[in-house]
């Protein structure tokens, strides 16, 4: 694959690659590098003050903790939903399948105000939950609800195609060897889905960590309690603390890059695992 062709047969190599690199540098790479260049001018003490103050640390705990929980919830229910869509016939299936992508298409601000309206004290769901002591809106639980919403399609959409391509022969083989249905699912089907499940989990988690729009309406944004890290950046910006905002952003960027690498690794594992021809 690494072999470089001496003569390129198809036209447009210079043009397409040249434009790609120029455009990508201009839009993505140069602006992103600004974060690290500015951060590198900070003293270590100033950097630590910005990224490790108690309020910021509390926001990490909320952002990463709620994202982890949301991604786990999506793994369980996303698997169930993908299973239902692939394996069962039921009325309204096409509609459900189409709407699963809603969080990709619905602007996050719309999702945010809608979820808030549902879970507020007098909302459709809130009016039943608050009397029994479950406060969702304006609490960390609200953050979780919003993050479950925006991460929902990832697990479904990574598991669904793998489940569809899974040859029935595999389960027939397990059955002919005497395995009961649960043994077949647990020992044969789920291990086959594992890379896709992990990929979906990582994608949902990565998306949740950076999420802003759907969360800020429902979170209540109380410092130390329900304030997410992206909001910290905004707050610092509004106080003209550009350096502080950039320092926190650099922490988030490093986290995103690590997640991106993990996701790439998981995806290529998943592709290899589900490669046909066995």
């Amino acid at each position: 694959m690494a072999a470089v062709r001496a003569h390129r047969v198809l036209p447009g190599f210079g043009l397409s690659l040249g434009f790609t690199l120029a455009y990508m540098s201009l839009i993505v790479l140069v602006p992103l590098s600004a974060v690290f260049i500015l951060t590198s001018t900070m003293s270590v003490q100033a950097f630590l003050d910005a990224v490790a103050s108690p309020r910021v640390v509390a926001s990490y705990r909320l952002t990463f903790g709620a994202s982890l929980m949301a991604a786990l919830i999506n793994v369980v229910f996303g698997l169930l939903l993908a299973w239902a869509l692939v394996r069962y016939r039921f009325p309204g299936k096409r509609l459900v399948d189409a709407l699963v992508d809603l969080p990709f298409a619905l602007p996050t601000a719309v999702a945010g105000i809608s979820l808030t309206a549902l879970y507020a004290k007098n909302g459709w769901l809130g009016q039943y939950l608050e009397p029994v002591g479950i406060k969702v809106a304006f609490t960390p639980l609200g953050v979780l609800v919003a993050l479950v919403f925006i991460g929902l399609p990832f697990v479904v959409r990574t598991v669904q195609p793998v489940l569809e391509d899974l040859d029935t022969e595999i389960e027939e083989a397990a059955a002919s060897l005497g395995a009961d249905r649960w043994q077949t699912v647990r020992r044969v089907v789920l291990p086959t889905l594992l890379p896709a499940l992990l990929t979906g989990f990582a994608l949902a988690f990565a998306r949740a960590v950076g999420e802003y729009g759907s969360v800020i309406f429902i979170a209540g944004n109380l410092p130390m309690i329900s304030e997410i890290t992206p909001l910290i950046i905004i707050t610092k910006l509004e106080q003209y603390d550009y350096v502080g905002a950039t320092a926190v952003a650099s922490v988030m960027l490093v986290a995103s890059f690590i997640l991106l690498l993990i996701i790439n690794g998981l995806q290529s594992w998943s592709d290899r695992r589900s490669a046909r021809g066995l």
């Binding site: 602006p31 974060v35 992206p230 950046i233 988030m252």
Partner: peptide, 15 residues
């Protein structure tokens, strides 16, 4: 895709 939208806005403010 992996960068938080807030960070995406921030980088243009920095530039």
């Amino acid at each position: 895709f992996s960068v938080s939208p807030v960070v995406a806005g921030l980088i243009y403010v920095l530039v």
